[in-house]
Design a protein around this nucleic acid. Structure first.
Length: 423
RNA sequence: GGAGGAAUGGCAGAGUGGUCGAAUGCGGUGGUCUUGAAAACCAUUGUACCGCGAGGUACCGGGGGUUCGAAUCCCUCUUCCUCCGCCA
């Protein structure tokens, strides 16, 4: 959520940046500021009324102490009206604060100035494209066929156990999952990321902290008996590790990574793009998270992008990097790079990573700040990215590396699988 | 799951209705002393909001209530500890 102070100080700039999403930023921010003005006026009234009550209460106490019971009781009699007034203003203040917070919850992050305008994925900017798109034989199979052929995963069995979108990985397929996770974690920790194993369920406060709640409630599985949510990504628990924290400036950079299963309801998304591993309700992912000094966060973002590239190179997959346009940018992000790998048999690009700088948007919600050399507190910048999400990597590995003997496992990965041919 | 106890500032820990935003100790910061350091001593040291300022308001796990007045009393939720039961 945008911070009031930020809106006051940089209204023009923020309004312009919100315009990249196709929003009337000027109007939205004016609404916030108008409410804020009202809030301040009411607070002054409320504070004054509370002060009156406090003063008179102290006087009554003093009178009782001095034994002037009659005077004390006389003063008491006069408090009713004051109390009423104080309560009215306090309620008003509360109501305006709620209104303001709700308004702020509806305003997405202001995109970075480099974000292209646009309405859909058509308008995303291709920043880089690496690797040859392989020429496939006519009888090349999509990954769900290969999975059947080599017993990699079974979606029908998942339906039996749970429902659609919960795959059962088998045999070398299961080993491949484990190998990918280990490869990703080893690489991340070698880059200085601290490995975290977080809880897979989070409470409401955590959901609000990273921006999943209140608006995207329907995307998470809700365990109503205990009011917990299954995490849609490790970003949520790992970022919230630093909720309500004041960091020292020299603590930067803070780098964390973690493997978790991710649970997403994906309500309302059906059709051909859900085939195979393309879209699932449960999938595995290694996430990288950084907390950065505001002056350094875009440098950090580039560093994260460069890191994820190294993984795709090791997996020998053709990939491209997109800078998401305003219309495709997620609610909390200021700038997002998506990574896509080529799916040879489907003939399309599959998103396998999304790396974002949230600037202070999450930090403001989470109250995550740092203290500068002058002891002043500022909001930190938070960033995260998938490094990487497994299912579409598996889909792409199967399809791109298929041979008549089986699936060729790239050398860097074969060290972890213990086999270089999946057959 | 059952029975008890507890939750106070960075930490430890007082405080059971009225100058308590909160004693004291430790820690932090600044200073005195010292060639330097340590020790000792002195001062200072929570967060947020409002206000040009003086100053004001709120916060003692969360929420609600009683009262002129709540850290203190009541209700409720959460968490932690002890004991019993169950269990990977």
């Amino acid at each position: 959520m945008l911070a009031i102070a930020q809106i006051k100080n940089q209204k023009e700039e923020l309004a312009q940046r919100l315009g990249i999403r196709g929003l009337d930023g000027e109007d939205l921010l004016n609404q916030v500021l108008a409410l804020d003005e009202k809030r301040r006026a009411v607070q002054q009234e409320a504070d004054a009324a509370a002060n009156e009550m406090n003063v008179i209460s102290k006087q009554i106490g003093q009178l009782f102490k001095e034994g002037k019971t009659e005077e004390a009781n006389a003063a008491k009699a006069k408090t009713g009206e004051l109390k009423e007034k104080a309560k009215t203003f306090a309620d008003q203040l509360q109501a305006i604060e709620n209104e303001q917070r709700e308004l702020l919850y509806t305003i997405p992050n202001a995109p970075h100035t480099s974000v292209p305008k646009g309405n859909s994925e058509e308008d995303n900017e291709v920043v880089k494209s690496v690797g040859e798109i392989p020429e496939m034989a006519d009888d090349a199979l999509p990954h769900w066929e290969l999975a059947k052929k080599y017993n990699v995963f079974d979606l029908e069995l998942g339906v039996k156990l749970t429902g659609a979108g919960f795959p059962v990985y088998r045999n070398k397929g299961a080993k491949l999952q484990r190998a990918l996770i280990q490869l990703f974690l080893d690489n991340a920790t070698a880059m200085g990321y601290e490995e975290i194993q977080p809880p897979l369920m989070i409470n409401e406060a955590s959901g609000i902290g990273t921006g999943q709640l209140p608006d995207k409630e329907g995307q998470m599985y809700h365990v109503t008996a205990d009011d917990f949510y299954l995490i849609p990504t490790a970003e949520v628990p790992i970022t919230n590790l630093f909720r309500d924290m004041i960091l020292d400036e020299d603590a930067f950079p803070i780098k964390m990574c973690g493997y978790t299963p991710c649970f997403r309801r994906e309500a309302g998304s059906y059709g051909k793009d859900v085939k195979g591993l393309n879209r699932l309700h449960q999938f595995d992912k290694v996430e990288i998270v950084q907390f950065a000094h505001p002056d350094k966060s875009y440098q950090v973002l580039e560093e994260m992008v460069t890191y994820v590239e190294t993984l795709l190179v090791k997996l020998e997959l053709p990939y491209r990097i997109l800078r998401l346009c305003g219309g495709d940018l997620s609610f909390a992000s200021a700038l997002t790079y998506d990574f896509e790998v080529w799916s040879a048999a489907q003939g399309r690009w599959l998103e396998v990573s999304s790396i974002s700088n949230f600037e202070t948007f999450q930090a403001n919600r989470m109250k995550c700040r740092y203290r500068d050399a002058d002891n002043k507190k500022h909001l930190v910048h938070t960033l995260n990215g998938s490094a990487l999400a497994l299912p579409r990597i598996v889909a792409s590995l199967l399809e791109n590396h298929q041979t008549s003997e089986g699936i060729r496992i790239p050398e860097a990965l074969a060290k972890y699988t213990g086999f270089d041919l999946l057959n």
